[in-house]
Design a protein around this nucleic acid. Structure first.
Length: 357
DNA sequence: AATACGGGGAA
DNA sequence: TTCCCAGTATT
């Protein structure tokens, strides 16, 4: 039998004294474990927590989730970001219902085939729900292992992932896979955080980074994300107490979410300049007034500079756009999944007559 | 192997 | 501002 590394023992010991009481730790239900893991992908516990409670309440079983309209799911996901998670959530729910009679597969190899479940989530679900011996490797694990064992390779380079996976699996206490995985992530979150609490650290005496003054330089992570600037001009077109909206298409941000009539430009333009290139609503320039500009909206790979206009078209005027546009009342609009930028735009201009109905 | 994909909290 | 969070899918 493999021996247990002192590091692992100390981690679990620390966890038993310091673990937070989180709702997904109070269940063995693979559905709830899976739901929590997807919600928590690249998402802080504090941000994901209310979403987990809401989804658990609204979709108590995988059958409920599989049966929900995608729009409803996206509306509930609103504000959490990375919306492909919500779409993949339903794809997987349907597969589990239709191919597995509602039972999640138990093995890492089967789980990782499901949409939205990658190496981390497959390890997490298989260990938390089924006790399978697979070590999780998330941002916490990269950080702890790099610091404690002095691994100075670039964690942004995907070819280095297997170094950490091998080490994590060597350290894994196979008879207590779930607890070990919880322990290492909790330790990374509370103790060995990006700016760590080394003073109170119970294992600093064995930590390479602590002993060598490299706590602040490990893990090594190159960051080369380039931010694209985009300029969105939104027109809240109102007629007969309804608003024109459109569902965003594939291959771009906010896929599947709803927004107002959009004219994207290459730079910041005035209303007159924007309308110069638009045949559809230019006629209504006299019925258009500018709303306070939203703050620049920062995404992981894009920065959205936006302007917003309200177009009040008289009821007796003829005006229609193509089939992909839909007229929605304020009530209906509330039920649609929208980007935070759009949600803020609505909230900030709540005085609009249509939103008071 | 690189890049796209949200939003927010902490330093 | 910058970093980065219980990462995954696509190219």
């Amino acid at each position: 039998m493999s021996t247990i590394h002192p590091f692992s023992e100390q981690l679990v010991s620390w966890y038993e004294k310091n673990a937070r009481d989180l709702p997904w730790r109070q269940t063995n239900d693979p559905y709830l474990i899976w739901l929590s893991e997807v919600i928590l992908q690249q998402t802080r516990v504090a941000q994901g927590l209310p979403y987990f409670e809401k989804f658990k309440e609204n979709f108590p079983t995988v059958f409920d989730l599989a049966a929900a309209p995608e729009n409803v799911l996206l509306r509930h996901w609103q504000g959490l970001g990375y919306y492909s998670r919500a779409r993949n959530l339903q794809k997987t729910a349907k597969i589990v219902v239709e191919q597995f009679k509602g039972f999640f597969p138990k093995s890492y190899q089967e789980l990782i085939k499901l949409p939205g479940i990658g190496p981390y989530s497959a390890a997490a679900i298989s260990s938390f729900a089924f006790g399978e011996p697979h070590a999780v490797v998330d941002g916490n694990v990269f950080r702890i292992l790099a610091r404690y064992f002095g691994i100075e390779v670039d964690i942004a380079d995907s070819k280095n992932r297997k170094i950490f996976e091998k080490l994590a699996n060597d350290l894994l206490i196979k008879s207590q896979a779930a607890k070990f995985n919880q322990s290492i992530m909790e330790f990374g979150s509370l103790q060995c955080s990006p700016s760590p609490n080394c003073d109170g650290c119970p294992i600093k005496i064995g930590c390479f980074a602590f002993l060598n003054g490299k706590v602040n330089s490990l893990p090594v992570k190159t960051n080369k994300v380039k931010i694209l600037s985009r300029f969105f001009n939104y027109f809240v077109i109102e007629k007969n107490n309804k608003i024109l909206v459109k569902k965003r298409a594939n291959k771009d941000i906010w896929e599947g979410l709803y927004e107002f009539y959009l004219i994207e430009t290459e730079s910041v333009l005035s209303l007159q300049e924007i309308l110069l290139n638009d045949k559809k609503i230019a006629f209504f320039a006299n019925f258009t007034n500018e709303l306070p500009a939203p703050k620049p909206h920062q995404l992981s790979h894009q920065k959205i500079y936006s302007k917003a206009f309200h177009v009040q078209i008289p009821d007796n005027f003829e005006f229609e756009l193509g089939g992909e546009y839909e007229w929605k009342s304020a009530i209906e609009l509330e039920e649609l999944g929208k980007p935070v930028l759009i949600g803020n735009l609505i909230t900030d201009n709540f005085q609009l007559p249509v939103f008071n109905s």
